[in-house]
């Protein structure tokens, strides 16, 4: 417990530094003490919601990744790679096409899409003998590509101007951040982090094997439902706000495990803090790398994540 607090203090300091840097730096230098109206508008109306949304999305995806990895006994499990993010993306698009601008339709359908995609991947990957890593990854690929093609078909319904912003959004993009997106994403991240953390001791057993977990007292069905539910909730909220930012759920828990070991009581809640800092910094990179133009943040995280994925796959 004491160790968890120490790690939390360090990571919160990193997150605070990341948030400060992301607010100050960008295509324009801006400080909160400026009296210039334009600078203040950049800082508070554009940059602040974007940075905070990045933090919420990062926390969401990382904590979902940590929970799914332990549940599925697979360090390669990640919302984006499992197709969960694409399920949420399809839900968001359907909401956009069918329900237009009705505010709550998008996160709701995103959540439903994420939950359905999770269930499909899980049932495809599961055999009587249990789960195996390759089968899970393959199932994720199949679901991801299938959903991608449906999404592409839906984009043909959009006009050219929207198509560009949708393409960016699909890759994971924080530039459309709104305050309502921040609130929703923050709420979802907090709820899911709490749910997943309360299951983390059970996840320590699940991570070793489903039979072990049953034998030593875990109500496996309940844990599975809570983890899938919580991860679908955060991924749905994150994707509805910022599209499919990939690999965050892979990179962050992996680095944390290297640093602090595998105890999910530490890895799960700390993934939320570290994930927030990670996406904030990745988005800062996306804003300044080719300023004044911008990259979608998902491109930056994928550039970092794909090599790690290959490394982990080879190591296994």
């Amino acid at each position: 417990m004491k160790r968890a607090v120490n790690i939390a203090v360090v990571l919160l300091a990193v997150l605070a530094a990341a948030l400060a840097a992301a607010l100050l730096f960008g295509a324009e230098w801006a400080t909160p003490f400026s009296t210039d109206a334009g600078e203040r508008a950049i800082l508070f109306d554009i940059r602040l919601p974007r940075v905070l949304l990045g933090a919420c999305v990062g926390a969401s995806l990382a904590v979902a990744g940590a929970g799914l990895q332990a549940l599925l006994r697979n360090p390669l499990a990640e919302p984006y790679l499992l197709g969960v993010s694409n399920g949420a993306a399809l839900g968001t698009m359907l909401a956009f096409v069918v329900f237009g601008n009705y505010v709550f339709a998008r996160p709701l359908l995103a959540f439903a899409g994420a939950a359905i995609a999770s269930m499909i991947v899980y049932s495809l990957a599961r055999t009587r003998a249990g789960m195996n890593v390759e089968r899970l990854v393959l199932s994720g690929v199949i679901v991801t590509t299938f959903l991608s093609s449906v999404i592409i078909m839906l984009t043909t319904l959009l006009d050219a101007a929207r198509l560009r912003s949708f393409t960016f959004w699909l890759l994971g993009d924080l530039s459309q951040a709104t305050w309502s997106g921040v609130y929703l994403s923050f709420g979802a991240a907090v709820i899911a982090t709490i749910i997943l953390t309360t299951q983390s001791r059970a996840l320590n057993l699940m991570m070793l094997g489903e039979r072990d977990a049953v034998d030593f007292g875990v109500e496996v069905g309940r844990v599975r439902l809570l983890v899938f539910g919580a991860s679908s909730l955060v991924v749905g909220a994150a994707v509805a706000a910022s599209g499919s930012v990939g690999y965050v759920g892979l990179i962050v828990p992996h680095l944390l495990r290297l640093a602090v070991g595998s105890d999910n009581r530490i890895v799960v809640p700390m993934s939320a803090i570290a994930g927030a800092a990670f996406v904030v910094l990745a988005d800062l990179g996306a804003r300044v790398a080719i300023a004044p133009r911008e990259l979608p943040v998902g491109a930056v995280t994928a550039l970092l994540g794909a090599p790690l994925f290959i490394y982990l796959l080879r190591k296994n």
Partner: peptide, 24 residues
């Protein structure tokens, strides 16, 4: 069973005490 996560012997043995606590 084999796990892909780096768990120490002590952590592994302690999971045997799960039933005496709560899930957190």
């Amino acid at each position: 069973t084999e796990s892909r996560f780096p768990v120490t012997v002590r952590e592994f043995v302690l999971t045997g005490r799960f039933a005496y606590g709560s899930s957190f």
